[in-house]
Amino acid sequence: MSDKNELPPKMRFKAQKAPPKPKPRPQDPIEQEFWNRCQDGHLYFQRCSDCGTLRHLPRYMCAKCGSPEFSWERSTGKGTLFSWTITHQALHPAFAADIPFVAAVVELEEGVRMATRLIDCDHDSLRLDLPVELTFETIGDDFRLPVFRPCEE
């Protein structure tokens, strides 16, 4: 087989250079603000100025009281594993080298739940309420994506 198109489908990813991982492409200024704030190496959530509820994903009105008023508050970056699945198939060729990877929902100390990836972990050690901490994966030369890793216990 001399042509890469003649390769079996499962080998085609390995025969090509992986494309860069895609960056979020927010369509809304409030979502863009969330990603901009992540670039300083910290995680921020909106807090309703009227009822004090934290909200994520970012949005214009509080789901609890309907207020449009909010401020951005920095998270501690500490939480626990709420749910997870081990992904064995890359849905985008940029993630082929990472499989299997852990797609997770983390519940932060502040009570916000966030969909993310869990890195640097032994899959056999995954359990509910596993303590995790925030870290960032650099995508490309200039973009930081929030991910989590198990805490040193």
Results as ranks from 00 to 15, higher is better:
residue 1 M to S: 13
residue 1 M to G: 15
residue 3 D to A: 08
residue 3 D to G: 03
residue 4 K to V: 11
residue 5 N to L: 15
residue 6 E to I: 02
residue 7 L to R: 02
residue 7 L to A: 01
residue 8 P to A: 10
residue 9 P to T: 08
residue 10 K to E: 15
residue 11 M to V: 12
residue 15 A to W: 12
residue 16 Q to P: 01
residue 17 K to C: 12
residue 17 K to Y: 07
residue 17 K to I: 15
residue 19 P to C: 10
residue 19 P to F: 14
residue 22 P to V: 11
residue 25 R to A: 15
residue 25 R to C: 11
residue 25 R to G: 12
residue 27 Q to G: 06
residue 29 P to E: 06
residue 30 I to F: 03
residue 31 E to H: 09
residue 32 Q to N: 12
residue 33 E to Q: 14
residue 34 F to H: 00
residue 35 W to D: 07
residue 36 N to E: 15
residue 37 R to Y: 01
residue 38 C to A: 14
residue 39 Q to A: 09
residue 40 D to P: 05
residue 44 Y to P: 00
residue 44 Y to E: 03
residue 50 D to S: 02
residue 52 G to H: 09
residue 53 T to M: 05
residue 55 R to A: 11
residue 57 L to G: 12
residue 57 L to Q: 12
residue 57 L to D: 04
residue 58 P to W: 01
residue 59 R to F: 01
residue 60 Y to M: 10
residue 60 Y to C: 08
residue 60 Y to F: 09
residue 60 Y to A: 12
residue 61 M to W: 13
residue 61 M to S: 09
residue 61 M to Y: 15
residue 61 M to V: 01
residue 62 C to A: 05
residue 63 A to L: 15
residue 64 K to R: 14
residue 64 K to N: 05
residue 66 G to V: 04
residue 69 E to I: 06
residue 69 E to V: 00
residue 70 F to E: 00
residue 70 F to C: 01
residue 70 F to K: 01
residue 72 W to K: 10
residue 72 W to S: 13
residue 72 W to D: 06
residue 76 T to S: 05
residue 77 G to P: 02
residue 77 G to A: 05
residue 78 K to I: 13
residue 79 G to F: 08
residue 80 T to N: 07
residue 80 T to K: 07
residue 81 L to M: 08
residue 82 F to R: 06
residue 83 S to T: 12
residue 83 S to R: 08
residue 90 A to W: 07
residue 90 A to E: 04
residue 92 H to K: 14
residue 93 P to V: 14
residue 95 F to G: 02
residue 95 F to D: 03
residue 95 F to S: 01
residue 96 A to C: 05
residue 97 A to I: 13
residue 99 I to H: 11
residue 99 I to S: 10
residue 99 I to M: 15
residue 103 A to C: 12
residue 105 V to R: 04
residue 105 V to P: 02
residue 106 V to D: 00
residue 107 E to I: 05
residue 107 E to C: 06
residue 109 E to C: 00
residue 109 E to G: 04
residue 109 E to S: 01
residue 110 E to L: 02
residue 110 E to V: 04
residue 110 E to R: 00
residue 112 V to H: 00
residue 113 R to K: 15
residue 115 A to Q: 10
residue 115 A to H: 12
residue 117 R to Q: 13
residue 119 I to M: 06
residue 120 D to N: 14
residue 121 C to R: 01
residue 122 D to V: 08
residue 124 D to W: 03
residue 124 D to I: 00
residue 125 S to K: 15
residue 127 R to D: 04
residue 128 L to D: 03
residue 131 P to W: 02
residue 132 V to C: 01
residue 134 L to V: 05
residue 136 F to H: 02
residue 137 E to T: 06
residue 139 I to R: 07
residue 140 G to R: 14
residue 141 D to G: 13
residue 142 D to A: 14
residue 142 D to M: 11
residue 145 L to P: 00
residue 147 V to T: 02
residue 148 F to S: 00
residue 150 P to T: 13
residue 150 P to G: 12
residue 151 C to M: 10
residue 153 E to F: 09
residue 153 E to A: 14
